[in-house]
Amino acid sequence: MPAAALHPKPARKPLPTQSTAQHPVLFDSPYAPMTKRPLPPGRPREWYITHNRRLKAMRLAIALLDSGVHVPGQARDGTIRGMAETIGVHPPSDTTCHMVRALMRYCR
């Protein structure tokens, strides 16, 4: 019998930065709101603004890709703002729309 079979590996403990919380998964809509977690305290205000803008741009890019808009040229500001209304987020700024197109360019 091999030595590995005699000594099973111990279960890995999660890293201190990994969350061990069980988050509910909602299946009734692909754009259902996710469970929110608090952001880390003590960062400059600009960090929070940029972080939230990136999350919004990522949600919008995923929704556009799922809806069949695969080319950044198809994702005009009006299209992106219409998708924001569809998924239930505030209309994005011009900067966020630019970030959505940049994410779509990166995903190709």
Rank of each mutant, 00 (worst) to 15 (best):
P2W: 11
P2N: 13
P2Q: 07
A3R: 15
A3Q: 11
A3N: 12
A4F: 13
A5T: 10
H7Y: 09
P8L: 11
P8S: 14
K9W: 11
K9Q: 11
P10I: 05
P10V: 11
R12P: 13
K13A: 07
P14V: 02
P14L: 05
P16M: 03
P16S: 04
T17G: 00
T17K: 00
T17F: 11
Q18Y: 00
S19D: 04
T20D: 02
A21G: 00
A21F: 04
A21T: 06
H23C: 06
P24E: 04
V25I: 12
V25S: 09
L26P: 04
L26M: 08
L26S: 02
D28H: 13
D28W: 08
P30N: 10
Y31V: 15
P33Q: 14
P33T: 10
M34I: 08
P40H: 12
P40A: 09
P41L: 15
G42H: 10
R43N: 12
P44Y: 13
P44V: 14
R45A: 06
E46F: 08
W47Q: 11
Y48P: 10
I49W: 07
T50W: 03
H51S: 12
H51P: 02
N52E: 12
R54A: 06
L55W: 08
L55T: 04
K56C: 09
M58F: 02
R59I: 03
A61M: 02
A63N: 08
L65G: 09
L65Y: 08
G68Y: 06
G68P: 07
V69H: 04
H70L: 13
H70P: 00
V71L: 08
V71M: 09
G73V: 12
Q74W: 07
A75G: 07
R76D: 01
R76S: 10
D77N: 08
T79C: 05
T79W: 01
I80N: 01
R81H: 03
R81N: 01
G82M: 02
M83E: 06
M83K: 11
A84M: 01
E85N: 03
T86N: 02
T86G: 00
T86H: 06
I87A: 00
V89C: 14
V89S: 04
H90W: 03
H90R: 13
H90Y: 07
P92A: 07
S93Q: 07
S93G: 10
T95A: 09
T95N: 09
T95V: 15
T96H: 06
T96M: 06
H98F: 13
M99N: 07
M99I: 06
V100R: 02
R101L: 09
L103I: 15
M104G: 11
R105F: 07
R108W: 13
